[in-house]
Each structure stands twice: as C-alpha cells, then as structure tokens.
Amino acid sequence: MGIAERWSRRGGRSAGDEALIRSLYEEHGRSLLAYATRLTGDRAAAEDVVQETLVRAWKHADDMVNNKGSVRGWLLTVARNIITDRARARAVRPTEVAETPTTPPIQRDHAQGVVDSMAVLSALNTLSAEHRDVLVEIYYRGKSVTEAASTLGLPPGTVKSRSHYALKALRTAMAEQPAEVTR
C-alpha cells in the first residue's frame, strides 16, 4: 500500500507513473496474467487484458489505493470486469442482425461474485502469515497435509491445528471487515 500512496498525487507524473506500472507489474503481473489466461483461455488476449488493467490502475491510482480491499484484489477485479465486458461485447454483436424482443438480456450481475471473492481475499490478507500460508497451501494449492507440512517446514499435526485456527481467524476477519468493497 505504501508504494501506491505516492502515486495518488496527480501532477509531475511521468517518471512516477512508469515506476507505478513497473512495481505493479513486478508484484502482481504473474497473478494477473495467470488469472486472465485461465478466464480467456488465450495468452495473447490475456496479455491485452493485463495491459488494460495496468493502464486503468495508473489512471485510477486513487481509487485503487483507497479501495478497502487489497491492491491485488482491485487489479484482479478490474481484469475480470474487462474480460466480462469484452465477452459481452462479442456476444452483443450478432444482435445487430437479429435484433428481436427474444434476444436474451445481457447479464449485468457478474460484479457481486467478484466483490465477494475480493472480500475474502482482503480478509485473507489480514491474517498472520502463518495462518494465511497454511490456508493457501491446503486450500488453494490443493496440497495434502504431508506436502504442506514439508513446504512450510512444520510437523503435520501443526498443519492440521493451524489450518483449523486459520479458518476461525478468517471468520473473525470477515466479520470485522467493512461490508463495502469497491468494485
């Protein structure tokens, strides 16, 4: 967060702008590109999405920094919105030739799921590193207790108890978190 605050100043940009883009790319590029690649199924399209995401981040640095969730969550949300908007734009084109009342309405409600997921992500970020790491290994990386224990350098019994407390800590974090998360 500290980094990003410096960008929220407008004026005297250029050098700082590039540094902002660079730091976002270095820190979040892999995550964004992997996410966009999975959703689009196309590396080239995913790169375009990442590029647009970073440009938006640069243009809306204040928004990104003031977002109640994490910078990572903001970026992933923007990337997902871009992908959804593009898919929708593609879906809409054919209505130009077949514009009838039976044309199904375009889905407009993808935002809610994203908000929820980013709320969970920012709650995860408030956990201690120990708690967060064990959840990431077990849940998101699908590791077995043995594998997670070896990755984290812990006895298997500790992985089990720690995952238990981590989930409880996450529940507390979710409860304390402000409900409003910027798109």
Partner: peptide, 8 residues
C-alpha cells in the same frame, strides 16, 4: 491465481 507473486 490470487496467490501467485512476482512478474509474469
């Protein structure tokens, strides 16, 4: 993917 770090 939210838990990947670093540049692409």
């Amino acid at each position: 993917e939210a838990f990947l770090d670093g540049p692409p």
